[in-house]
Amino acid sequence: MPSGNLVLRRVVQLVPTLFFALLLLFVMVRLLPGGPATAALGDRGTDADIARIEASYGLNRSIAEQFLSYLWQIAHGDLGVSYSLKVPVTELVLQRLPVTLTLTACGSVLALAIAVPLAALAASRRDRTTDLILRGLFQLGLSSPVFYIGILLLTLVAAKTGLFPVGGYGSGFLDNLHHLVLPSFALALNFAAVLFRNLRSAMIEAMDADYVTFAIARGLSPRVVLFGHVLRNALISTVTLFGLNVGWLIGGAVITESVFAIPGVGRLMIDSIFARDYPVIQGLLLVLVLTVSVVFLLTDIVEGLLDPRLNR
């Protein structure tokens, strides 16, 4: 069990990182070309109009001043109001983010469900036909872009069989899940391939380890050895991989959303960037960064639980 001390230290380490991430985000959004007034008015805007609109958003103040007042806002749980949609950003985030995160979670779980048993199967049949076929298939899966798998699933499965909806999002929990089956599968394939490759080698390494030879020598059944010893150790690399890939998974979810027309954060983010809607861009990215850092923290803790040596 990782001590509370260690967890606390990790959280404290996170604070400056988050602060600088927010600072970087804030400055980047303002320094990159374009502005909310020019985006809204196009070529018709006169300099006076643009200045007036930017002043109404407080953009005529110095960046330092703007940043301090933004920090003050966030400290009070307020992400500001969208320039173009005139809705509180918190409301938008709460509407869109759960969709993206549910998709990411479903994709991850599905990837696990596909990769773990097949990796165990491949590892136990090392270098035989089953292993070679599985490795080839997953290598192909690794090279298949999410959007392409998505389109194929839409055409071959959704349109042909009618078992699943052709994109969009449902109403109510079960209907939502039904809408997410194919998108999750499209999202899961790449991650499943990454998991499979690493789990297979982790399991093979564990099978060659002395403690497994000893466990077999003690007369434990192959099943007990596989699940109790080999899989348990391979689990650590799964958790590490999830931590390393969560950024990719969220990005993949954003692309999947666009293929299946799912109303998650992806469309909202791109639209708000084109409109230079600073509060929305900042709010969305800030929440995503928070999500990633929470996952980093959790994977650290779980790794410590699984392998106490890591806690030192």
Binding site: G247, G251, M269, I270, F296
Partner: peptide, 15 residues
């Protein structure tokens, strides 16, 4: 700490 793809998409959308 930024989700890689999301950040790339964001920067391209800006530029």
């Amino acid at each position: 700490i930024f989700p890689f793809l999301v950040l790339i998409i964001a920067i391209i959308a800006f530029l």
